[in-house]
Nucleic acid binder design. Structure first.
Lengths: 175, 175
DNA sequence: CTTCCTGCAAAGGGTTTGCACGCCT
DNA sequence: AGGCGTGCAAACCCTTTGCAGGAAG
């Protein structure tokens, strides 16, 4: 019962829903790419390897379902695409995202460190904080090394593609 | 030269661009609604009062332009719409957004408090932080008072709809 | 058989782009 | 003239929805 797949099956069963082959495929893709922040389309493409008849709509519906179950995190980095990542059982809402403005990669930062901020907010405004999203935009170690304007290296992952525009322009979202 | 409008005109002039009547109208709307996080459509509707022939495309192009000039902040709270707010000259990237899951209102929190976090990130990961976006999801003082399930008050904005679900489930975006 | 699920295709909503015309220098 | 800027409409992209057929309990 430490198996995430069984866990999801149980959660679903409890509300008369099933872990269909399609759903299991999607779940497996998410598990195989933990910490990778796939888009729905990327999940779809990966999943089609195992389930060629799978449709996009099912992927979206499944990701939605999983999100409601708390099995995945949906993360919107401010470009027009949502990204999804598997969310280990019992994980708090810790861990923030570092988005490289140069190569688009998304790194993670595990420590929370936000409690002082949340406490200050609650105390000073009366707003009850339930969850948070912290995005840090900047340069990842690699791009920092290469210099902000160097042409992209063939070195790193395919590059998750975060919208482009001229580097130097301000990062879409902001606090 | 403290007038933001002149400031923008200058900035534009420097790159052979002009502060046209349309652009000025958009700018005025943003100024009149400082701290209000309007959507492009809301800007458009407001602006049409002063410039009935204005087109949506111009609004988008202008907001884009202003964003590149650093005159406005684009903020994406995780639902499918971008929101824009005037960004006072010389303002750092401080100030965070508190998004009420009940009524959809967006409040602001002026103090930064993120420096310890950013320093920790830079030190531990080598990632160079340039800007950030902190969204706190929860209940605003009003909704908190009314109770999480009270029918919406006539008091607040139409409610921008932030994903619903049982409060307690994680809100769409997350860090 | 009833309910849950699926794929397909169409619809949706926000945002962007192509194009021809207008405006300012 | 020569750009820059604009309105309009069409195009785009991601995501959602309607619907008829299937599978599971």
């Amino acid at each position: 019962m430490h198996d995430p797949i069984d866990h999801v099956r149980d959660r679903l069963g409890r509300q008369d829903q099933r872990l269909t082959p399609q759903r299991e495929t999607v779940l497996r893709v998410l598990l195989e790419h933990a910490n990778e922040h796939l888009t729905a389309e990327e999940v779809y493409l990966e999943a089609r390897g195992a389930a060629p008849d799978l449709g996009m709509a099912t992927v979206y519906r499944t990701l939605d379902l999983f999100e409601r179950l708390g099995v995945v995190h949906r993360l919107d980095a401010g470009q027009g695409v949502a990204r999804y990542e598997f969310r280990p059982e019992g994980e708090g809402h810790y861990h923030h995202h570092l988005i490289c403005l140069e190569c688009g990669r998304i790194l993670e930062f595990e420590r929370d460190l936000l409690e002082p901020v949340e406490r200050a907010v609650e105390k000073e405004t009366g707003f009850l904080v339930i969850d948070h999203s912290l995005l840090l935009f900047g340069l990842c170690p690699d791009c920092r090394r290469t210099g902000p304007d160097a042409p992209s290296q063939g070195a790193s992952p395919p590059r998750p593609d975060v919208g482009e525009r001229d580097p130097g322009a301000s990062p879409g979202a902001s606090s």
